Computed example of a mutant assay.
Amino acid sequence: MDSEKIIGVILAILLPPLAVFMKVGTTTPLWINIICCIFFWFPGILHALYVVLSDNY
Rank of each mutant, 00 (worst) to 15 (best):
G25D: 01
I45N: 04
L53F: 05
M22D: 07
P16M: 05
P17F: 01
I34A: 06
I35E: 11
L18W: 03
L15K: 05
L53H: 03
N56D: 14
V9L: 04
I6S: 15
G8N: 13
N56Q: 15
I6F: 12
V9E: 04
K23M: 12
H47T: 09
I7A: 08
E4L: 06
L11G: 02
I32P: 06
T28P: 10
I38Y: 14
A19G: 06
T28N: 14
A48G: 04
S54T: 15
P43Y: 04
G44S: 10
L53G: 08
G8Y: 01
C36L: 05
L30G: 00
W31C: 10
T28M: 13
V51F: 01
P29R: 01
K5M: 12
L14H: 10
L46F: 14
P17G: 07
P29F: 00
F39V: 15
I32A: 14
P16D: 04
G25N: 09
F39C: 11
D2I: 11
I34V: 06
C36V: 02
V24D: 05
P16Q: 07
P43L: 02
V24S: 00
L49H: 00
I32W: 13
C37H: 03
L30D: 03
V20D: 10
V9K: 02
V51P: 05
C36N: 09
I32F: 09
P16N: 04
L46R: 06
S54K: 14
T28D: 12
K5P: 09
L15I: 13
W31S: 10
S54Y: 11
W31K: 01
T28H: 13
D55R: 14
N33P: 02
K23C: 08
L53S: 08
V24C: 03
P17S: 13
I7L: 05
P29K: 00
P17V: 02
I6N: 02
A12L: 02
I38K: 12
L53N: 09
N56Y: 15
L30A: 00
M1S: 08
A48R: 05
I38R: 10
T27Y: 12
T27N: 13
F42M: 02
L14E: 11
P29L: 12
T26C: 11
F21W: 14
S3Y: 11
M22W: 04
L14F: 11
G8T: 13
C36I: 06
S3R: 10
S3T: 12
M1F: 02
D55G: 14
T26Q: 12
K23D: 07
A12C: 12
F39K: 13
A48H: 04
I35P: 10
I13H: 13
I32V: 15
V20N: 02
L53K: 04
I34N: 08
L15D: 07
